[in-house]
């Protein structure tokens, strides 16, 4: 396999073509992204996303995806901490983020 050592970073692309380079480990908290990057086809072939490390989200705007990416790193930084600081979600984005979190399956608190 050529991707014996996949990059530590992946790229997330929003509907309005903003690109966010995220730590792979941080983005893996989303079962949705995890399956995009890891699921194998019937012949052991990986999806295109897995080969390129690039996930496009035509449903999510750059503004919302930015917050999602912020959350990924917020989670990554605090995952082993006892006192977790609060992450601020602007009220005007709350419904869009609710939809995005539901879509990315960021609901089980692991």
């Amino acid at each position: 396999m050529d991707d014996s050592a996949p990059s530590r970073y992946i790229t997330l692309v929003s509907s309005d073509d903003f690109e966010f380079v995220v730590l792979r480990d941080a983005a893996m908290i989303s079962p949705m992204i995890k399956s995009m990057l890891e699921r194998r086809g019937p012949a052991g072939m990986s999806l295109l996303e897995a080969q390129t490390g690039r996930c496009a989200f035509p449903e999510i705007t750059g503004q919302v995806l930015e917050k999602v990416v912020e959350y990924f790193h917020y989670w990554y930084k605090n995952r082993n901490r006892e006192d977790v600081p609060d992450m601020d979600i602007p009220v005007e984005l709350c419904l869009e983020l609710l939809m995005a979190a539901d879509y990315l399956q960021l609901d089980s608190k692991s």
């Binding site: 082993n80 983020l97 609710l98 979190a101 960021l106 089980s108 692991s110």
Partner: peptide
């Protein structure tokens, strides 16, 4: 479903859905 979660460790970070709900 949680016993073999990817992170293993029990984290205290709230989920994004929870954060969005709180904001709502």
């Amino acid at each position: 479903s949680m016993a073999h979660s990817s992170t293993g460790e029990a984290s205290r970070v709230p989920s994004l859905l929870e954060l969005a709900l709180k904001s709502c």
